[in-house]
Amino acid sequence: MRVFPQNQWYVAAWSREVGRDLFARTICGEQIVFYRTLDGRVVALADRCVHRRYPLSLGTLRGDDLECGYHGFTYDCSGTCIQVPGQERVPRTARVRSYRVVEQANWIWVWIGEEAKADLAAVPDNHWLDDPGWTMIGGMAPLPARYQLLVDNLLDLSHETYLHAGFIGTPEVAATPIQTEVDHAEQVLRISRHMHGVECPPFYEKSTGFSTPVDRWQDIEYRPVCSYVLHSRIAPAGVLPGDAGGDTGAVHAKILYGITPETEHSTFDFWAVARDFALGDAEVSDFFERMNQEVVQQDVDALTLLERVIADEEKADAVSEHGRVQELSIAIDAGALAGRKMIREMLASPTPTS
Rank of each mutant, 00 (worst) to 15 (best):
R2S: 12
A13G: 01
A13P: 01
I32V: 15
Y35S: 03
V42G: 06
V42F: 04
V43S: 01
C49K: 03
R52E: 10
Y54P: 00
L56P: 00
G59I: 01
D65W: 09
D76K: 08
G79M: 07
T80K: 15
Q83W: 09
P85Y: 09
R95W: 06
V102W: 02
W109D: 00
V110T: 11
I112L: 10
D119C: 11
A122G: 02
D130H: 09
M136R: 14
M136Y: 06
P144S: 09
R146Y: 06
Y147V: 12
Q148S: 15
V151A: 09
D152V: 00
E160T: 11
G169P: 01
T176L: 06
I178E: 05
Q179S: 14
R190S: 11
S192F: 04
H196W: 12
G197I: 08
K206W: 05
T208M: 10
F210H: 06
Q218P: 00
Y222E: 02
R223D: 03
P224A: 15
L230Y: 03
R233Q: 07
P236V: 00
V239R: 11
A244K: 12
A250P: 01
K254Y: 13
K254D: 12
I255T: 07
L256G: 11
G258D: 04
E262F: 06
E262D: 11
H265Q: 14
T267I: 03
A272V: 08
A272G: 13
V273N: 05
A274C: 14
D281N: 15
A282G: 02
N292R: 09
Q293R: 14
V300Y: 05
V300T: 13
A302F: 05
L306E: 13
E307T: 05
E307S: 09
E313M: 11
E313W: 03
A318D: 10
S320Q: 04
H322L: 15
L337N: 12
K341H: 11
I343H: 02
L347I: 10
T353N: 13
